[in-house]
Amino acid sequence: MRALIKIIKEQYHSFYLIMRLAKFQLRIDNQNNYLGFAWEILNPAIQMAMYWFVFGFGVRGKENITNGHSEIPYIYWMLAGISMWFFINKAILNGSKAIYQKYTMVAKMNFPLSVLPSYIIMGKYYGHLALVGLIMVVFWIKGYYPSIYYIQLIYFLLMSYILAFAITLVTSTLTVVVRDIQMLIQSLLQAMFFLSPILWDRSTSMPHWIQSILQLNPFYYLANGYRASLLYNDWYIVEHWQLTLYNWGLILFLLLIGSTAHFKFRNRFSDFI
């Protein structure tokens, strides 16, 4: 518990540092492209168009997706969920590598090491916010206007960041000790992509116990949360309060393990790198 408080304090005091470093990271990543930052949005946009073509036209046809109360065309349903996924996927992949890739850069300084994964995540977060903004505009054009439920969207946007941080706090430390973990994460994320209701949701036609297991996946909660706020207009947090509690419990648990592991290995990172 003490480790967790220390991490949170470190993050809080380094807020300016995280923002600036994230900005520099974006510049480093996009320096060579003429379009620069625009690629952070163009890239996922092209992928979205592809998924929509393959799954929207090819596989699903013009079906609507229901949440029980109202129906939403597949393409919008998919867009809302997948925007979250592009962020989470990149943030976890790159965030896990953060310590072993960037450690030498800060090795000779008194640097708060837990900032390494969080500034990588923050860099991806900027792109995410821009992408969500773009999708919102598409929704407005199509008649899904801003509502009081946008407040809930802020909650889910924040939660995506916190979840990504909690996961990478664990994985960035583990990856330093055993490099193979990075490969494992890559495979797991691919599996999660198809186990989460991002491209499809057939869970209602599955046996009840499988449905329950699928809901234990934190990305399930996030994807549906984004949709509830942007499209379905219902209070997902309250209607599925058990999931809300479960997911915060999971985040707390990850943060606890992550911060303990981080401080246990922090002084020995240099031995592993």
Partner: peptide, 11 residues
């Protein structure tokens, strides 16, 4: 940019 970057890293 490097000056600012490195100064940030030095805290």
């Amino acid at each position: 940019e490097n000056i600012e970057f490195k100064c940030l890293l030095m805290g």
